[in-house]
Design a protein around this nucleic acid. Sequence first.
DNA 1: ATATCTAGTGATCAAACGATAAACAGGGCA
DNA 2: TGCCCTGTTTATCGTTTGATCACTAGATAT
Lengths: 229, 229
Amino acid sequence: MRKQASPRPIHAKQKRLSPEHRRKEFVAKATEFFSEEGFGGGTRDLARRLGVTQPLLYRYFPSKDELIKEVYRTVYLEPLDTGWEKLLADRSRPIRRRLQEFYGAYTKAIFTRKWLRIYLYSGLKGLDINRWYVGVVRDKILTRIIRECRHEAGLPPETRPTASELEMAWVFHSGIFYYGVRKYIYESPVLEDREQMISNALDAFLAGFERVFGTATPDMARQPVKIAG
Amino acid sequence: MRKQASPRPIHAKQKRLSPEHRRKEFVAKATEFFSEEGFGGGTRDLARRLGVTQPLLYRYFPSKDELIKEVYRTVYLEPLDTGWEKLLADRSRPIRRRLQEFYGAYTKAIFTRKWLRIYLYSGLKGLDINRWYVGVVRDKILTRIIRECRHEAGLPPETRPTASELEMAWVFHSGIFYYGVRKYIYESPVLEDREQMISNALDAFLAGFERVFGTATPDMARQPVKIAG
DNA sequence: ATATCTAGTGATCAAACGATAAACAGGGCA
DNA sequence: TGCCCTGTTTATCGTTTGATCACTAGATAT
């Protein structure tokens, strides 16, 4: 008794897809596990969490290291690939709105205990993927923000960001980033209104950027202080 | 043949002091070791680094965990106990100078690969000592900074800092802190002139604090934008 | 000199680790 | 039914881990 027409390709698809689904499920659960226990966590404990026995992991992944690498890959790519660059560059909207919206979306993506922990672990290991991510933030986000700030301040937009501009953007960005660390890793009490936090940080950054780099009218804004050793 | 006069107290001192010195030396070297390898590093590798055999560690420390706790204790207390509170509160000097000097000294104390790594490791473990340190930063540093900023802006200094003020100080402080993480842990290129970085961050923070909380003249400063969901 | 004390070593244990091999179970297909 | 394929488990290997014990070397005290 034949069930349906062309059962072959259907079954073939299911057969090929199901293991991949299982694999993805394993990676997802492993991400949660390693984010809590650290990557020193044992494969037996991980398997118990998955509801399977430990040797089964080695049917899906050749080694623990390979599993970990796959965890990194999925975690790092998770918050990316949205239209953030276009959002930041859309000069039909005021820059402050754009930045507020961007950091609302960005922090919504990365402010999870899981993501932040994996990120810090990989950073402490000095992994290439971490350096790659830092480079992405610098080139795709901060450089764009500086370009928009320059345009806003009436500065020439042609050249690449100076080290000083980039650093100021980094300090701003890091301040927001560390809000997530304090809340989700240190579990320290923070200002609950995240949008307000971003708004205040933006006020400081935009005012500071103009004060430091802008063509300030000398009477209303104090010049940046030169430091004596 | 007697060596010298009164050898007793001298020798006694050496005898009692020498083991403690050795212990301190072990803790110091263990700090370096664990900061690089993580606390999952083996006691045999640690002993090799100390130039001794592994069982000797257990003459000085009852267990690996106790050694680790002692590492935490010394590392966390290392940068503290200087006259920072007095420095921040000295109103005979301009607030900007005080903050610049404070963050120069503070970052000089904690911006080492060793300290930052131990700090992040303990933060990821959720250790009590980490929470204690975060509380110290909040109560002894940020609260004081806010008080001075309020005084500078002509605001009432009596009440405790609001959650919003505290958050703004945290974001500022974290931005500077993360400069160290980027430089010494991620080993990412940063603006080499640290004083300049602090100066720019200060410009942004002070301008932002006044813009957000100060009694701003409405025509020269744009009001903080209320966010629509 | 000799007894004493102690920092330090060599040998070793039990447990936990990552990883492998062989056996098992259950559904699809002839 | 009997065969095969594949997901899963049981049993186990070799190594590494933190930790312990009995012993040695070397300085000190009498």
